[in-house]
Design a protein around this nucleic acid. Structure first.
Length: 479
RNA sequence: GGCGUCGUACCCAAGUGGUAAGGGACAGGUCUGCAAAACCUUUAUUCAGCGGUUCAAAUCCGCUCGACGCCUCCA
């Protein structure tokens, strides 16, 4: 059996995944896997690009669970920064009131896309004491300085700075305006831990160093400390966060506590929409809601977001979303076929071996840094193989059940094979009337009155109902 | 300017030294009164271009062209 290997941004290499840092013989013997994922800033609806990253998080946790690891996963919610503060001010609401609403929307979106439930969804504003503790320790260890009542981290004092983003290899471009922040720093690359209020009515909290609000990076370090207490296994986020966000998290956490912050860093590449960067002016800044309103199913969105490897750029297009109806229909038809053909005569041996082969190839593929595209290939190979068997020899009820269970198992990772698309259930179509018309058509066909039969079919088609004649009678579906 | 990534069929997309997965589209077939759907089969002598290393390269090295990322609190 293979072992899970993941690409670690910290070392720039593929590494065997060893939770807790100590190799065990069996997966069940490993301690709970601790994962922290940078979540959304809740000042607006999250867009499709955000959801690529979040979908990756969902896939990662689902696969770890599938593999037998115990998972303890955090997705944070940034509820205090310039954007949330300004947004609340603009609507004359309290920060909490304002962000509560978007957190709710965000969680609805997660549900819409069939996300697994994460263990924790902490808000930045709920970890102020932990932030204060980090700042106290940094101050005591001599890593901070104060300027205009804001507290900064001095990277000159921290020897290990730059390991994640390989800063030591870089030269800073001359003539670049490096920082336009209103806050003054000693070194342009220093970062703020605690911001002095710009105005009295701004949200602020009291800590030993004075009244203010958290800098961008401190919240993640604080929440990780609060929830996990010590070194965590995996930290994920979009590639844009490598520098400076994650670099600064490492600096402040390791300088404060003197122990390793994170074992494995995983970063998701950004997506393109219609071949270019998402852009509000081009109208390619989609939210999940936008797409659903346009009539695309959440299931297709999930599939598309899933389908490309997380470290490759994914080109998200509406045409691509459309074409996903086909593979999904193929999967659905396959599942339906399992139910229909449960009285075949094949020996189960072939089914058993094909199913076993599928699962082991699925594991081998996914163990290679979550190669989801390869795994999708495995899935369709399996469907193809079973379809062939059914065509040639049929399938027994036992065989059918085994295939069904195998799909269920794989779907604990995919999450789009058995997807409850609520859109299909709230129908206002009169099913009884349709069944009656189908019965009439059947009679017409029996009487060889094909003109009458076709006119019934056409009448329903004009209402958007498609009739399909199969071996076991006629079924209908919406266009 | 510095650091880095990518370029595989009409489209999407795996494969990173052993002779091109998978999906969509297209085409042929089975089934059907016809159709649709479903299923089956077929589809890249070739991996941006050029040169090199090797018994062997899409995979390693060099150069060229093209797209992109970070170096600006953007997932």
């Amino acid at each position: 059996m293979s072992t899970l290997k993941i690409y670690n941004t910290l070392t720039k290499t593929m590494e065997e995944f060893i939770p807790g840092g100590v190799k065990k013989n069996r997966i069940e013997d490993y301690p709970e896997v601790s994962i922290y994922s940078c979540g959304p800033t809740v000042y607006n609806f999250a867009h499709i690009g955000n959801f690529r990253t979040f979908t990756f998080n969902d896939m990662l946790r689902r696969y770890l669970k599938f593999r037998g690891y115990k998972v303890n996963h955090t997705l944070n919610l940034t509820d205090v920064d310039d954007k949330t503060i300004n947004g609340a001010k603009a609507e004359n609401k309290s920060l909490k009131e304002y962000t509560d609403r978007f957190i709710e929307f965000f969680k609805e979106d997660l549900k819409t896309l069939n996300f697994d439930e994460f263990e924790h969804y902490p808000r930045a504003t709920e970890s102020i004491p932990e932030m204060a503790d980090i700042i106290d320790r940094l101050e005591k260890n001599g890593f901070t300085y104060e300027k205009d009542n804001s507290i900064y981290f001095s990277i000159a004092k921290w020897d290990h700075y730059g390991q994640l983003s390989e800063l030591d290899k870089r030269e800073i471009q001359t003539g670049t305006r490096y920082d336009t922040d209103e806050y003054e720093k000693d070194d342009i690359r220093d970062f703020v831990l605690w911001k002095a209020p710009k105005s009295e009515d701004e949200p602020q909290w009291e800590i030993n160093q004075g009244s203010g609000r958290p800098g961008w990076h401190i919240e993640c370090s604080a929440m990780i400390r609060k929830i996990y207490g010590t070194t965590i296994d995996i930290h994920t986020g979009g590639v844009d966060l490598i520098f400076p966000h994650h670099e600064n998290e490492i600096a402040q956490s390791e300088a404060a506590y003197g122990e390793k912050f994170v074992r494995y860093w995983m970063h998701v590449k950004h997506l393109f929409v219609e071949g270019a960067k998402m852009s509000k002016s081009k109208g390619t800044f989609y939210t999940i809601r936008d797409l659903v309103e346009k009539g695309y199913s959440p299931r297709s969105i999930r599939y598309l977001l899933f389908s490309a490897h997380y470290r490759k750029q994914l080109n998200f297009t509406l045409a691509g979303l459309d074409s996903i109806k086909q593979p999904l229909a193929r999967i659905d038809n396959f599942v339906a076929r399992l139910k229909l053909t449960a009285e075949g005569c094949s020996s189960d041996d072939e089914i058993v071996s094909a199913s076993g082969k599928f699962i082991s190839s699925f594991i081998e593929t996914m163990d290679d840094d979550l190669n989801i595209s390869g795994a999708l290939g495995n899935l369709f190979d399996y469907i193809h193989e079973i379809n062939s068997i059914i065509d040639q020899t049929g399938i027994t009820e036992n065989g059918s059940r085994l295939v069904y269970d195998t799909l269920k198992k794989a779907d604990s990772v995919f999450g789009f094979i058995f997807f409850n698309d609520s859109k299909d259930t709230n129908t206002d179509i009169d099913a009884e009337r349709i069944e009656k018309m189908i019965a009439e058509r059947k009679e017409a066909k029996a009487a060889k009155n094909f003109a009458a039969a076709d006119s019934i079919r056409d009448a329903l088609l004009s209402e958007g109902i498609i009739l399909e004649d199969g071996k076991d009678g006629t079924t209908w579906k919406r266009k």
